[in-house]
Design a protein around this nucleic acid. Structure first.
Lengths: 95, 95
DNA sequence: ACAATTAGTCAGAAAAACTTGACTGGCTGA
DNA sequence: TCAGCCAGTCAAGTTTTTCTGACTAATTGT
């Protein structure tokens, strides 16, 4: 049960078919479930639900109920999630 | 077929059960097939072979035949692979 | 000559990830 | 009251990834 590669855990948090896109979109502002499913081309409810749940469990996203107008739920980057932003930018600038 | 997330491609290059560890070890020096399989606890020939081949195809690793004593093959980071080192360090320092 | 080490490949099985479609239940506007 | 949006869940099926064990074939040490 050793790891020997500290980056592995962080990498795993963003691995999967939809997580990178979800993370990228979360950088730009709060997310809503149905909107995500509609915006992420080729995705589906179930996969997005699982990705959101895992990212929340890993502490990348935070879930809030917004008691307003249509009464909805928002997912946004946590402090931990925000720490990954510079890494993301660095990856983008590598191209 | 859009992407909308430039970091996705880079992330995918290091995704998979063994690639992060292989990359990490490549930072420390050239790798050899059988040694990798022995050192990476829980791995197997086939998976390591596939990971190495893909990482080579993606241009992260370079393969060289070393015509010496036991006549063996070495995998080492390419220029492209080396560009990822700072990202890796940043991920490590995030813990 | 024989055994071990090198670096693999192959087929098939098992496990993990992803998709589909149906369904739930609260809330809101007409 | 009825339709539609919200945020999901569930079971089943498909696809992708990973693992196992057997095998190849050149090179090297004794």
């Amino acid at each position: 049960m050793e790891n020997s590669c500290p980056a592995e855990g962080l990498l795993k948090m963003l691995s999967g078919k939809w997580k990178p896109q979800i993370f990228r979109m979360a950088v730009d502002g709060p997310l809503r479930f149905n909107a995500l499913v509609r915006q992420i081309n080729g995705s589906n409810k179930q996969s997005i639900a699982v990705a959101l749940k895992e990212m929340e469990e890993q502490g990348l996203l935070e879930k809030t109920t917004v008691r307003l107008k249509p009464l909805h739920i928002e997912y946004m980057l946590s402090a931990k999630g925000k720490m990954l932003i510079p890494v993301f930018h660095q990856l983008e600038n590598l191209l």
